[in-house]
């Protein structure tokens, strides 16, 4: 029991399960899955499908946060990649051609990769604080997207492109395959190689890592590049879902949702140890919460309030201060420690 309680995934999973249970009690149809024409439908399937863009962004964010960084630009990068892809398709003579769509997707994602590399350059080489370095692109990115679309919301008709977010393969949404593939690739890359532990080392102690011979510059740079690439892919999914490139609305606030998902999953914003499984759980939790809010008849616009409540609960539960207060209440150990710094270490 104690080991389960201590597991980092305990609280995130508990939150997700609680949400699902509450939903099921409120409307038993929540967990029902129907088959229509060989395709699965139901609220749970919707959650899996709709969570795909957030999943991609949150994966990248996890890696960036592990290096002690943060990437605020993901929403803007999504807007750019969507704008690039749709502008290419719109301008082509054959919007329904598979080749056209592939080129559009590849170019859109590559542009996003370039933006990620730019962020990484500012952070890893120039040495600018991550919040500010990525704030630059967060501010400028949507402007760039607007310039690409000429200030309009580009809409297209292209069946292959539509398939990205709305198609089905073997009964399941294609978007789900994309996000799961991303999870698997990132997990393999981080945990089957030494990339994960080296990333954690850099996040925990950059200078010690450098002196130990870790190529921290490359690792940090790579993290931002990966985040850009994944955000680009998310932008493709997003624009494919609405079949439009909306530079203002695409990926709005997704950086915040992604950061939330990462934190919910038990990865500290201070960098270091990270949990991809936690992030996956965090993404599903947020998506379920959003669907719950919609189901409750709350206007989607009010949903941030509920997200805020969740954030507050989660960070308070994670807060060492609250935990120590609780621990003290139960054990009546020792009087108040007035120096939060000195905390656990024994000074001589």
């Amino acid at each position: 029991m104690k080991r389960i309680l201590k597991n980092r995934l305990f609280w995130p999973v508990l939150a997700l399960v609680a949400l699902i249970v509450i939903n099921t009690i409120a409307r038993p149809s929540f967990i029902s899955i129907t088959v229509q024409g060989g395709q699965l439908y139901g609220p749970l399937i919707d959650i899996l499908r709709n969570s795909a863009p957030l999943m991609l962004v949150a994966l990248g964010m996890t890696i960036v946060i592990a290096t002690r960084g943060i990437d605020l630009s993901v929403g803007a990068v999504m807007a750019v990649s969507g704008a690039v892809a749709l502008t290419i398709i719109e301008g082509s003579s054959d919007p329904n051609g598979l080749g056209t769509v592939l080129v559009a997707i590849v170019v859109g994602v590559l542009v996003a990769l370039v933006l990620g590399v730019w962020n990484g350059f500012l952070v890893a080489v120039v040495g600018i604080q991550p919040i500010i370095a990525t704030l630059v692109l967060m501010l400028a990115g949507r402007g760039i997207a607007l310039l690409i679309t000429g200030g309009f919301i580009t809409t297209i008709n292209s069946e292959p492109y539509k398939f990205m977010a709305q198609g089905y393969v073997l009964g399941l949404p294609f978007a789900l395959y994309v996000s799961m593939a991303a999870v698997v690739v990132v997990a393999l890359l981080e945990r089957r190689t030494a990339l994960g532990v080296l990333t954690e080392a850099v996040g925990i102690n950059p200078e010690a890592s450098r002196l130990a011979g870790v190529r921290s510059r490359g690792i940090i740079w790579g993290a931002y590049a990966a985040s850009g690439l994944l955000a680009g892919l998310a932008g493709i999914l997003y624009s494919s879902n609405i079949m439009a490139a909306d530079a203002n609305a695409a990926g709005l606030y997704i950086e915040l949702d992604a950061i939330l998902a990462v934190v919910l999953g038990g990865t500290s914003l201070m960098g270091g140890k990270f949990s991809l499984a936690g992030t996956v759980v965090g993404v599903f939790t947020i998506q379920t919460l959003k669907s719950t809010i919609t189901f409750l008849g709350v206007p989607p616009a009010v949903s941030p309030l509920f997200l805020a409540i969740v954030v507050v609960i989660v960070v308070l539960v994670q807060s060492p201060r609250l935990r120590s207060v609780l621990a003290r209440a139960s054990q009546a150990l020792r009087p108040r420690n007035s120096s939060p710094q000195g905390g656990s270490e024994v000074a001589s």
Binding site: E200, A212, V214, K273
Partner: peptide, 19 residues
Amino acid sequence: EGIIGDLSVAENIVLGIQA
């Protein structure tokens, strides 16, 4: 500039050779 505090003893030992 030495230890990676939140990593285990084992991970700290292997870090040099891994890097």
